[in-house]
Design a protein around this nucleic acid. Sequence first.
DNA 1: CCATTTGGACAACCTAGTTGTCGTTATAGA
DNA 2: TCTATAACGACAACTAGGTTGTCCAAATGG
Lengths: 178, 178
Amino acid sequence: MSTHFDNLVVTSFGATYAGAMSRTGADLALLLLGGFRSLAAAATAELARRGHDDVHPAHDFAMRAIAAGADNASELGRRLAVSKQAAAKTIALLEERGYVTRADDPTDARRKLVQVTLQGNAVMREGEAIFEELRSRWAKQVGSDELARLERTLTELVGSEPISLAAPGRIVSDIGDA
Amino acid sequence: MSTHFDNLVVTSFGATYAGAMSRTGADLALLLLGGFRSLAAAATAELARRGHDDVHPAHDFAMRAIAAGADNASELGRRLAVSKQAAAKTIALLEERGYVTRADDPTDARRKLVQVTLQGNAVMREGEAIFEELRSRWAKQVGSDELARLERTLTELVGSEPISLAAPGRIVSDIGDA
DNA sequence: CCATTTGGACAACCTAGTTGTCGTTATAGA
DNA sequence: TCTATAACGACAACTAGGTTGTCCAAATGG
């Protein structure tokens, strides 16, 4: 079989012509997903290559939210638009892997204060750099004007819809995710 | 909190200015994901409104692959770049909900022949129409030239990478009866 | 001071993947 | 033709990320 994205789209959606202009709406969705996947997979792989084989973009995302002030499970849940239980699970996983710590909040005995560790910060820095690198690779490929234009268009399209990012994570489930 | 995409990006990734041009690589990835999600969520909702509240785009995707010839679990797995076990689960789910049927293959006693039902075909047709409608809504919003340009750019970017739709790192290896 | 809200911990469950094992069936080659 | 190997599907156990619902304890606001 061909695992090439283009072919997969064509095969799966039975578009009339292969390389033709006549893109369908579903193709557009797959194109967007494919783009995301392409970046996310590359980032995950590169992160793994650098020794962090246990983190995905979703974890990076969660850590940033924590670092940005969502320092307890409930708040993190709100911030990521998932339940507090789901957020607590993510925190537990990150803690287990040494990317965050949890301590009692001295000002509120109910709360557990979550903090990003040095290791966690390192991952975030690497993640940033990797995505930057991937973006510039794309810019080289189609021209930075064209890429900027794509971003502008997409921002206009997506920015105007009140859709939260919800679970920004698992690449696979993004297909089925509504 | 704001669940508006733009704000979320800014907050979570700590970009320096809110509406500024300076998009980061991670923003680009989120933009793509956001775009996909936006479409997928709208499609799922619309499908539910039309009485199919138990299907997601992923199921539509799988059904198309089945209709296009991936009529057994192993082949479907290959086509979708997941394990045959995962594909079998999807098939089981679709069968349970009446979108596909499974029968013994008369030419190969090992195989179970999967076929899309009338109901399954109906969902695919509706899905197509919905995505078409969503696309034209986007075309109205930014202009069809601009949208076509976005698609062209994205195709160039994504189509040129030999990335399968597989999970991050999950290279399709049916080597050794996995 | 008490009622209500909130945070966190469990538990049970769902979806969607994974790997590993195994029996059965095809198939290719000596 | 016989046999080794490959392939299909089923089952089991596991991971990861999500969901509700229940519950206790702690904070907070009349």
